[in-house]
């Protein structure tokens, strides 16, 4: 599957901190122009994996090719082509949002105007003159993303970019990321939000305890689960004896019908005029995670 012009080729990388195996044998490739997500709970090893790929850490074992180069030790020719947002924002002390971007732009030899465009892109124009330590958590996050994008890199690494963002900012960032992808750039990002990854990513790797449990398109992962559909109804309106229902459970307020033939059940419900307040739940990546680990997913 590996082709010479793959953006990223990760081959069996390992990294231990003492006895702790933070990354334990990851192998995957990311294609040019792909939106690639790494998912997993706290401590899964996402940041460690990302930092090995970026060239910030040396793997104990295994190899990485980033745009055809070995990222470790530091390869200066590679650096203008990658943009990195670290999980903990790294800002120059006491500089304003605009000055941070101008400084980063200058480090890459980019003109100042681009720095101002980036502020606009992440919606921080009105915070341009605010010092780094006076920004809110989400504003810092957005500034940090802008700093990663300022030199228009070919591959963008974002470590939990949507953490700490309010729903509006999250949506705006989705648009920004989609626009970047539309220009042919490759995006690798980590997140705790499985629903978000399902919407954004071309492919996702689900990680736990330093290993990849599954890697595919979100749709394929969910389909592979072959999970039943759940239909939830208000208790008062729920009819009995529906065709196609595999299992019916009820609590104080609602009735949940589990079915592998949702069309049959829904048709029957429509015939009986019982569609009011109805919810249909198909499997999500959370179910995939639950299935893979036997644990409930907790972000």
């Amino acid at each position: 599957m590996t082709t010479p012009d793959d953006a990223i080729v990760v081959d069996n990388i390992h990294k231990s901190y003492g006895d702790l195996r933070a990354v334990n044998g990851l192998t995957f490739t990311v294609h040019p122009g792909e939106f690639f997500g790494i998912l997993g709970p706290n401590g899964a090893g996402k940041t460690t994996a990302l930092e090995i790929i970026e060239g910030l850490r040396k793997p104990d074992q295994g190899s990485v090719r980033l745009l055809g180069h070995n990222p470790f030790p530091r390869t200066v020719a590679l650096l203008p082509r990658i943009g990195v947002q670290l999980q903990a924002s790294a800002f120059f002390t006491k500089l304003t949002a605009r000055e941070q971007l101008e400084t980063f732009a200058a480090l890459y030899g980019i003109e100042t105007q681009r720095a101002h465009d980036m502020l606009d892109l992440v919606g921080l124009t009105d915070k341009a003159g605010t010092r780094e330590d006076k920004l809110s958590g989400g504003q810092r996050q957005r500034l940090s993303i802008a700093c990663a994008l300022v030199h228009d890199p070919d591959i963008v690494f974002l470590d939990e970019p949507t953490a700490a963002l309010d729903p509006q900012a999250r949506r705006n960032l989705w648009d920004v990321l989609r626009a970047i992808q539309a220009r042919g750039k490759t995006i690798v990002y980590t997140t705790h939000y499985l629903d978000e990854a399902e919407i954004l990513c071309d492919r996702v790797a689900i990680m736990d305890k330093g290993e990849i449990l599954a890697l595919d398109t979100p749709a394929a992962l969910v389909r592979g689960l072959d999970a039943p559909t759940r239909i939830i109804l208000d208790k008062s309106t729920a009819p009995r004896d529906l065709p196609g229902a595999d299992e019916v459970t009820e609590d104080d307020l609602s009735v949940t019908i589990t079915t592998r033939a949702p069309a049959l059940v829904l048709t029957a419900l429509a015939e009986r005029g019982a569609l009011d307040g109805l919810q249909v739940r198909t499997a999500t990546l959370e179910d995939v995670f639950l299935h893979l680990t036997g644990r409930e997913y907790r972000a």
């Binding site: 020719a77 650096l79 203008p80 990195v84 670290l86 790294a90 800002f91 002390t93 480090l107 890459y108």
Partner: peptide, 12 residues
């Protein structure tokens, strides 16, 4: 504050 790390990623 990881600024040094971040600077390692810049071509300087």
């Amino acid at each position: 504050k990881q600024i040094l790390r971040r600077l390692r990623l810049a071509p300087i």
